[in-house]
Design a protein around this nucleic acid. Structure first.
Length: 301
RNA sequence: AGGUCUGUGGUGAAAUGGUAUCACAGCAGUCUCCAAAACUGCUUUUCCAGGUUCGACUCCUGGCGGACCUG
C-alpha cells in the first residue's frame, strides 16, 4: 500500500509553497496545507494564500471565519485527506508553518483525549482567575500539578483544559493513539531571522498594495471582530485603524512585529520538537540538496 | 542671532533629592481540542564636564545636541 508522506515545514516567508509545488510536479503530488489560518474562507490576503495553478491544494477554505476550528478537527480531516490522496497513488505533501497542527498528523505517539470542550465549564472558567484555576487543579490532581512548568502554571487556557480533561474524561478510554504508519520524510526550511524580517516587512506592504484593506472591509460586513477567524494577527493588528484609534502606519508596524514573533515561535517549534532535516534558504544549493534527499527517499521501497 | 522648552536601553515613556521602572522591539524557550493563540525567562538605559549634597535622572553653572517662537 502506498503510504508515503512528504512534509515541508518552516516559519512563514521561507517559500514553502513554491518548493512544494515544484516537488509536486516532479512526484505527482498534491498539497495538504498545514496552516491554522488558511482554513478560513475569504481570508486570503491576510493569511497569504497563494493558490498554485495546476497543483491541487487541500485543507484551505474549509470553514467560515465565524466557525470554531481546533487541532482535533484538523487532525481528523487531515488524516482522512492524506489517506485519500494516497489511495489514488498520489504523493501527499503536507506543507505549513503551524507546528502544533502538523504534529497532530505526523507524530505517531500523538494521543487524542476524547474530552471535547465543555461549554459550561469553559464559561465558569472564564470567570476564574489563574490563581483560582491553579487551586482547582491542585485539588483535583496534586501529582500532575507539581509537575507543571512556569509556562503552564500561569496559562489560563491550559489550566482550564487540564481541569476539563481531569473532570470529564470517561474512565478507561480517555486516550486514542494516532496510529498512522506513514513512510514520511520531513524537510524544514530555515533562514537567518533578520533575512526573514526583511521579507516579512516587504510582504506586509505588498499585501496592502494588492487590496488587503478591502478584504477586511468585506469580511467586516459579514463577521465580527470577535469571531474565531478574525482573531488572526494580521486582522487584529488592523483593528485599531478600522476603529479610528490608530493610524495605518503604526498598525502596519505592529503587524510586521507580530509576524516577526510568529516566525520566531514557528522556527522554535520545528527546531526543538521535530526531527526534520533543515535547509537554510539563503544557501545557494539548498534546493538541489532537498531534491537529492527526497529522490533517495521516494525511490527506496 | 535672541527667547522658550527639552535631552533616560534600539524606540516610546515613568521615577516628592533616596534600590533607575514600564511597554514595544530583540534573544531564548514552553506546548496534545484558541497555536498567526496563550504563557515563561533573558539582554540592553540617565548627552558631556564641573558644582551643591551623606546621596543627583531630578537642583545649579558651562558645553554639545534637538524642538518651537521671534527676527
Amino acid at each position: 500500500m502506498f503510504n508515503k508522506l512528504l512534509v515541508i515545514s518552516g516559519p512563514t516567508a521561507t517559500g514553502k509553497t513554491d518548493l512544494a509545488v515544484e516537488l509536486a510536479k516532479k512526484y505527482n503530488g498534491e498539497l495538504v496545507s498545514g496552516d491554522s489560518c488558511q482554513i478560513y474562507k475569504g481570508m486570503d490576503i491576510g493569511t497569504g494564500k497563494d493558490q498554485p495553478e495546476e497543483t491541487p491544494i487541500h485543507l484551505i477554505d474549509i470553514v467560515t471565519p465565524d466557525q470554531k476550528f481546533s487541532v482535533a478537527d484538523f487532525q481528523k480531516i487531515g488524516l482522512e485527506t492524506i489517506k485519500e490522496i494516497q489511495s489514488r497513488n498520489k504523493l501527499p505533501i503536507l506543507v505549513g508553518c503551524s507546528g502544533f497542527y502538523i504534529d497532530s498528523l505526523i507524530n505517531p505517539n500523538y494521543t487524542t483525549f476524547s474530552v471535547k470542550p465543555h461549554k459550561i465549564w469553559r464559561f465558569i472558567s472564564r470567570l476564574c482567575s489563574v490563581k483560582t484555576l491553579q487551586k482547582i487543579y491542585q485539588f483535583l490532581d496534586p501529582e500532575n500539578f507539581s509537575k507543571l512548568n512556569h509556562s503552564e502554571i500561569n496559562n489560563h487556557y491550559r489550566l482550564t483544559r487540564k481541569i476539563e480533561i481531569k473532570l470529564f474524561s470517561p474512565k478507561n478510554k480517555n486516550l486514542t493513539l494516532n496510529n498512522n504508519d506513514f513512510d514520511l520524510i520531513h524537510v524544514s526550511l530555515t533562514a537567518p531571522m533578520d533575512f526573514l524580517y526583511h521579507r516579512i516587512d516587504a510582504r506586509v506592504q505588498k499585501r496592502i498594495d494588492i487590496g488587503f484593506l478591502d478584504e477586511v472591509k468585506k469580511l467586516l460586513k459579514k463577521y465580527k471582530w470577535t469571531d474565531p477567524g478574525m482573531q488572526i494577527g494580521a486582522y487584529q493588528c488592523l483593528r485599531p485603524y478600522f476603529e479610528n484609534k490608530k493610524d495605518l502606519d503604526s498598525c502596519l508596524r505592529n503587524w510586521c512585529y507580530a509576524e516577526h514573533s510568529d516566525a520566531r515561535r514557528q522556527s522554535c517549534w520545528f527546531k526543538t520538537k521535530s526531527n526534520a532535516t533543515f535547509f537554510d534558504i539563503t544557501k545557494t544549493d539548498f534546493k538541489k540538496q532537498i531534491f537529492t534527499l527526497v529522490s533517495r527517499w521516494y525511490t527506496k521501497l
